[in-house]
Design a protein around this nucleic acid. Structure first.
Length: 561
RNA sequence: GCGCCUGUAGCUCAGUUGGAUAGAGCAUCUGCCUUCUAAGCAGGUUGUCGGGAGUUCGAAUCUCUCCAGGCGCACCA
């Protein structure tokens, strides 16, 4: 645990003890200690940490908050907490000022822990799976997939940093109705390219990328499937195209910085009979009934709005049935927690999926679904309706070509999944130079430049002494920067608890800003050896933390810009 | 019609889960490069937190209601 975490925790504990002590002495009366916060106040003049404990106790204690604050402070043990001064302010806040000397330890702590600085033990090795993107292998990756990729990958990295054992997974929908439609579309393209009149069927895939796919295929096998039995022809085309699309998806995501631990085939669940077995299992438990020739899951028992079909009257299982089997498989693989990132257009699926999990005897809360709002593409000032079937969309690859991988990832990670992002490609192009990601990367490049220069002038980098580090405490800019660095492990813990990687993007922007301010106000490579070593230590520490955050966000840290 | 998400500065978005005087970037205006990278810094301007009511010491945050936008409500996925 980092020093700052220990300080905050100790003060929290001592506050609780103070309340108990006052209660024992008959100075305060309350049943259970209400939940209270100890946090850094927005205004610097309010000190380093502030608590609302006195105010939240008013109801039970039946005394004015400022009086309660007095009593708490009288009973508070401040030994080893670095508390130097306190005051009661406003309606009853207790503000603490810490002895700034503690900040001198931050640099040493970061340099000692290196790339592990920020790692917290929140997860305790718990096994977590993050499933994200899982785009249909019937086309290219679009903007929504890009958002999911950036979000899912950084969330997974964040959880790793927080002490979870994380597995990244991609679910390949290579079975079912849509694959049949896909086959018919491929066949139409094949025939078209060989000069026949063959329309894309209703509900088929109109994307132009299929033309390229089929051209590639024709280059290999020519027209020999022209005279084949349609069933066999379709089967061949689908196998070829799925393989090609999937390879393309895999490569594109890899280029985007995303690598999966597991690629899971839906088809394998059908082939092994697991879908059927799972339906039988649920039927045995009485959660399935027949109506109009189809099998229905009583998902309304678990809060769904209506029951859902799992096996159609023609005997084929629905997507939902396969998904139930898939999630059962996930839990049987031993994950304590399963996180899915879905587009908001799937939110109607959440309740029934959780219901199915419960019906199978698993804890529905172990399945957490992050819904992200859709990405709206703006072109020529108008919303473009994106759809894989219509073939109208901007691809992830185009996005990377236009604005770059780092800018694209950062753009998505910066935003709360709940916000509907409007993506104006023309604007993104023109603004790519002032994408906030460069602000952060520029800070990193500057840090590297200072260190290069230090080495060129033959300053040996060494660990500054405690006395030297205290020299950093003389300026506000350095103290602010140290404070932000010290806060990093807590940011990790908070972001991981809330499953909100966008907090880290905000954090790293703040950190870069504090560094730029420091850079402009204090010179690092000064004559004085002690001060120079101390500032170089701060520079190295800042560089390390930037590195650690950018690694989580999947953004590169350039040594020069 | 019902359910979920959203509404904060001219634009794009944060807001530590109910805290003190609501923040940042872009835009705009004024300064700062003979010293470690000006893709930077310092400062100015910018608000009925969609409207209304309520809950309490205290509300952008919680409740209700209304308005606006997005998404969903298939034997599609």
């Amino acid at each position: 645990m980092s020093l700052y975490e220990r300080i905050v925790e100790m003060i929290e504990r001592n506050l609780a003890h103070a309340a108990e002590r006052a209660k024992a002495a008959g100075e305060l009366s309350f049943e259970g200690l209400p939940s209270y916060v100890l946090e850094e106040p927005r205004e610097r003049q309010h000190g380093d940490l502030a608590t609302n404990l006195a105010m939240v106790l008013t109801k039970q204690a039946k005394r004015p908050p400022r009086e309660i604050a007095d009593i708490l402070l009288k009973n508070l043990d401040t030994k080893e907490t670095w508390i130097e001064d306190w005051s009661i302010a406003g309606p009853g806040f207790i503000n603490f000022r810490l002895n700034p000397d503690w900040l001198a330890n931050v640099v040493t702590e970061i340099l000692r822990e290196g790339e592990d600085y920020g790692r917290v033990q929140l997860g305790q090795g718990e096994k977590v799976q993050v499933e994200f993107v899982s785009a249909n292998p019937t086309g290219l990756l679009h903007m929504g997939n890009a958002r999911g990729a950036a979000l899912g990958d950084s969330l997974a990295s964040l959880l790793e940093m927080a002490g979870y054992e994380v597995s990244r997974e991609f679910y390949i929908n290579d079975a079912g109705n849509q694959i049949h439609n896909f086959a018919l579309s491929l066949e139409a393209r094949y025939l078209q390219l060989l000069g026949q009149d063959a329309p894309i069927p209703e509900g088929g895939y109109h994307g132009e990328d299929l033309i390229d796919t089929i051209k590639g295929l024709i280059a290999q096998v020519g027209d020999k499937y022209l005279t084949q039995e349609p069933i066999l022809r379709q089967e061949f085309l689908v196998r070829y195209a799925l393989d090609e699309k999937l390879r393309h998806i895999r490569e594109t995501l890899k280029e985007f910085g995303v690598e999966y631990d597991v690629w899971f085939n839906e088809q394998s669940l059908h082939d092994s009979g697991f879908v059927r077995a799972t339906m039988e299992e649920m039927e045995k438990k009485g959660y399935i009934y027949e109506k109009e020739g189809a099998l229905w899951l009583k998902s309304t028992l678990f809060g769904d709005e209506k029951d859902e079909v799992v096996v159609r009257s023609n005997g084929t299982p629905t997507y939902f049935a396969a998904d139930i089997a898939y999630h059962r498989n996930k839990f049987e693989r031993g994950f304590n927690r399963v996180i899915n990132i879905w587009g908001a257009d799937h939110h109607g699926h959440v309740a029934r999926m959780k219901g199915a999990i419960e019906a199978l005897g698993f804890n529905p809360d172990a399945l957490q679904i992050i819904l992200m709002q859709l990405v709206r593409l703006i072109q020529n000032g108008e919303v473009v309706r994106m759809s894989k079937r219509s073939g109208q969309y901007i691809t992830l690859r185009e996005l990377m070509d236009e604005v770059g991988r780092d800018a694209a990832r950062f753009f998505f990670i910066l935003r709360d999944p709940d916000s509907t992002v409007e993506f104006d490609l023309d604007l993104a192009r023109s603004q790519s130079a002032d994408n906030p990601v460069y602000y952060v990367q520029y800070a990193y490049a500057r840090l590297c430049s200072i260190l290069r220069q230090a080495q060129e002038t033959q300053t040996n980098l060494r660990l500054p002494t405690g006395a030297e580090l205290k020299l950093l405490l003389n300026s506000q800019e350095e103290r602010d920067l140290l404070k932000k660095l010290a806060d990093f492990p807590r940011e990790i813990a908070l972001a991981a608890r809330l499953l909100e990687p966008h907090r880290l993007a905000r954090y790293v922007l703040d950190l870069a800003s504090l560094f730029h301010t420091f850079y402009n106000s204090q010179r690092v490579l000064v004559e004085d050896e002690g001060l120079r070593q101390a500032r170089l230590g701060l520079v190295r520490g800042t560089k390390q933390v930037l590195n650690n955050v950018l690694r989580i966000l999947g953004v590169t840290a350039p040594e020069r810009m």
